[in-house]
């Protein structure tokens, strides 16, 4: 049992997983009469890759939206870094070190790839308006400093050749990658990925899986991801939460979840695309 080692554990492949980073306690979220999430609790440990799976409409995206501050649950508590989080706006959540990507890509279409990724660092850019307008000392130095960080991410995700391309012109798969780059640029503590591989071909999925593993490995970023492709989920994740109709029906390692009868009935048994 994982709860038996609150200080963390070591995975089969030798990665160190730490204590609890984020904890959802008895979250309930309603839209009018519709209960999108019913009394769900789970935690995300430091350094972990945590998957959230479940059939369409299970409430997975809603859960990410609760974490990132878009939805305020009617009941329940969100704990981050061992502290109860007061309800806050999405931009405040971002400043706490939580970055995310969206199920339907949410990039800035009118801007270049480079500018899109640079936006990921906005919270860290502190020069005042006046200094920026005059492009004096600090503003220029700051721009260059952050540009260097962003170039490293561009290299890391192998998108050097499209740096200056307007995002609107990119194919779907590359857009997903740029969105990941923008989230990474924020150097988040916790990275939320909503179906990072949806609509990709096998090769693109392999690339994306490799990037996710590398991010986790190299930067030690904690990752929570939603994914429909069971093969990918089983390969990538350390622990899996299974949702169905807004309820949690399973939670554990991929092997445990795979063996769970409720999960097999509700999810794996259901015909899925």
């Amino acid at each position: 049992m994982l709860d038996a080692n609150p200080e963390g554990y070591t995975t089969a492949d030798g990665r160190k997983i730490g204590g609890v980073l984020m904890e959802m306690r008895n979250i309930t979220l309603r839209f009018g009469g519709v209960k999108a999430i019913t009394d769900i609790s789970f935690d995300i440990r430091e350094g972990e890759i945590r998957a959230i799976i479940g059939p369409n409409g299970a409430g997975k995206s809603s859960m990410l939206n609760v974490i990132s501050g878009f939805y305020v649950p009617q009941e329940g508590e969100v704990w981050f870094h061992g502290q109860r989080r007061a309800p806050m706006k999405p931009y405040e959540v971002a400043r706490q070190g939580i970055a995310r990507t969206f199920q339907n890509i949410a990039l800035f279409d009118g801007m270049s790839v480079l500018d899109n990724i640079m936006t990921g660092r906005l919270t860290m850019m502190k020069t005042g308006l006046f200094s920026q307008a005059l492009w004096w000392g600090r503003a220029q130095a700051e721009e260059t400093e952050h540009r260097e960080k962003v170039e490293r991410i561009i290299d890391f995700l192998e998108i050097q050749s499209i740096r200056k391309t307007p995002v609107g012109r990119l194919p779907y798969g590359l857009k997903k990658r740029v969105e990941l780059a923008r989230a990474l640029a924020a150097e988040p503590k916790l990275l939320l990925l909503d179906e990072p591989m949806a609509g990709m071909n096998v090769e693109e999925k392999e690339d994306m899986s490799r990037f996710i593993l590398d991010v986790n490995d190299e930067f030690g970023t904690t990752i929570a991801l939603i994914e429909h492709d069971m093969g990918v989920v089983m390969d990538l994740s350390d622990r899996v939460v299974v949702m169905d109709y807004g309820k949690k029906i399973g939670d554990g390692t991929p092997d445990e979840v795979r063996a769970n009868q409720a999960v097999i009935d509700a999810y794996l048994g259901v015909a899925h695309d």
Binding site: S68, F70, K89, P90, Y91, A94, R95, A99, R100, F102, A106, L107, F108, D109, G110, M111, D115, T119, G120, L122, T123, R182, A186
Partner: peptide, 16 residues
Amino acid sequence: MAIRDMDIAAEIIGVN
């Protein structure tokens, strides 16, 4: 430009 192109995404990257 982030606000112009997509205001929810702007918020998620920390723009007030």
